[in-house]
Design a protein around this nucleic acid. Structure first.
Lengths: 131, 131
DNA sequence: GACAAATGATACTAATATAGTATCATTTAT
DNA sequence: ATAAATGATACTATATTAGTATCATTTGTC
């Protein structure tokens, strides 16, 4: 069970690299620097591009470029792209085994954990990861 | 992404049922009461049995019986059986993309979330779920 | 304009984890 | 003896995650 999938992980590595270097960076360069499979990285960066986090430039000398300020990009923003809503519970209640959802202490507790996790993920920025 | 898998979910339902009813309960009865596939439930209860949470009784009239006091059984105990260690991170560091693990703010943050979740899961008992 | 280097789009495969089924062996109450 | 239960375990199915492949398009350079 993971809070962060490889998509998110790779994204962060690439974003950190790009933030540190600045300017346009090609997938080929990222592959070399980060040892991440190129085709997979491309797919990931294309997704970040679609979300407006990166801009892309075709042709020779092209690549991707960070479009947002590191302090404005949250870990949660990235995770959400690949993992949808970060759901921590998915429990008893679907099949109505529980008489009253609103009162169930389990659901309340799991919701609590979830919202804590979301809050923390929403609080950490790319800038913080650059250190 | 789930904090709790179906194994754990079903376990809790069965444990709640058994705690409320008391005495020996057969899988057949649980299947009817909880609408959980019998073969799957059997496998789950056998696991709980091996862990000493349930005792089993073979033969006609047999079944499973709760062996621990509800207040002494933690949600974390159950989740751990099926989900191993509840890991929330599994990130950048395996492949040494990160220069110094101990300093990385991402790892620190993910560890923080993880330990929060573990603490909460370890704090809720079966007794609390009985309400 | 030709060409090569890049991304865009997208379909496909592989690996892993989760969920669930099936079956035969063993125990035990009647 | 029989049937009702669990013990053990191998197998299948489904979903999610990870990764590959390919063709199309754009664009800088000669």
């Amino acid at each position: 069970m993971k809070l962060i999938t490889r998509n998110t992980d790779y994204s962060l590595r690439a974003l950190i690299y790009m933030a540190k270097k600045g300017g346009i960076v090609s997938v080929r360069e990222l592959e070399r620097a980060l040892k991440i499979p190129r085709a997979f990285l491309r797919k990931i960066l294309q997704a970040l591009n679609k979300k407006g986090i990166l801009a892309s430039q075709k042709g020779p000398g092209g690549g991707f470029r960070l479009l947002v300020a590191p302090k404005d990009l949250r870990l949660l923003d990235v995770a959400s792209i690949f993992q949808g809503r970060v759901r921590l519970n998915e429990c008893l209640f679907k099949r109505k085994a529980c008489p009253d959802i609103r009162k169930c202490p389990l659901k309340r507790e799991l919701d609590n954990i979830e919202s804590y996790a979301l809050r923390r993920l929403g609080a950490i920025s790319l800038a913080a990861l650059l250190k």
